[in-house]
């Protein structure tokens, strides 16, 4: 049967409907498996180097601050964690960060919009997983990274390229299913 323009006209809406249905199905599947989150803000930093910055140290802790230059050429992949003492999910993820630190993984912290005394007290109380700790009181470095809430965790490879970003607390599942395989892959 030849495809007349009339038939084409009838088939076009059907084609659009099929494409739409496939799109919705993919979205629903993604929602089910967790690979698609309509509220999640995808990071534009993945695949790129960290933006230029220089974070001052957080006095009371005695830990050095850091700059973007220091994130390049490292002996192993590294985690950069944005946190604050006033952030409740940060307490949830803290044991996981402590565990990684004990295993020798480099975790560098960025203390976001916090009072230095509160931040120091948080670390005395819950333990300190950070080798370095920069203070971002104005929150501008966080905006340069595309952070939209604390906690947020980034994994950088040895060359300083961001390979992974996790918004929200690092749960034991995230640690086992995401961070460990990534640390192995980029080791």
């Amino acid at each position: 049967m030849p495809l007349t323009s009339r038939r084409m006209l009838m088939l076009a809406p059907l084609g659009i409907a099929v494409a739409g249905g496939a799109g919705f199905y993919a979205m629903l599947r993604g929602l089910g498996t967790g690979s698609y989150d309509p509220r999640g803000v995808p990071s534009v930093l993945v695949g790129r180097a960290a933006p230029p910055f220089a974070l001052p140290p957080l006095e009371a802790t005695g830990l050095p601050g850091f700059t973007d230059a220091e994130l390049r050429d490292l002996p192993a992949p590294i985690l950069v964690n944005f946190w604050a003492s006033w952030c409740v999910p940060c307490i949830i993820e803290h044991p996981q960060l402590m565990r990684l630190a004990r295993e020798g993984v480099a975790v560098w912290g960025v203390n976001y919009k916090d009072k230095p005394a509160d931040a120091a007290q948080f670390l005395t109380r819950h333990g300190n997983p950070f080798q370095r700790l920069g203070a971002d009181q104005p929150g501008r470095v966080a905006i340069d990274w595309g952070v939209y809430g604390v906690p947020e965790t980034y994994l950088l490879d040895r060359k300083g390229i961001v390979r992974w970003r996790w918004p929200g607390p690092v749960t034991p599942e995230v640690l086992e299913q995401d961070i460990r395989p990534l640390l192995r892959r980029h080791a």
């Binding site: 809406p13 659009i16 409907a17 494409a19 739409g20 799109g23 919705f24 979205m27």
Partner: peptide, 16 residues
């Protein structure tokens, strides 16, 4: 695409 195509999809569905 699905976001922008939604009005077209709704119109087509209604028409059908």
């Amino acid at each position: 695409a699905l976001l922008w195509g939604m009005p077209l999809l709704a119109l087509g569905g209604g028409g059908l």
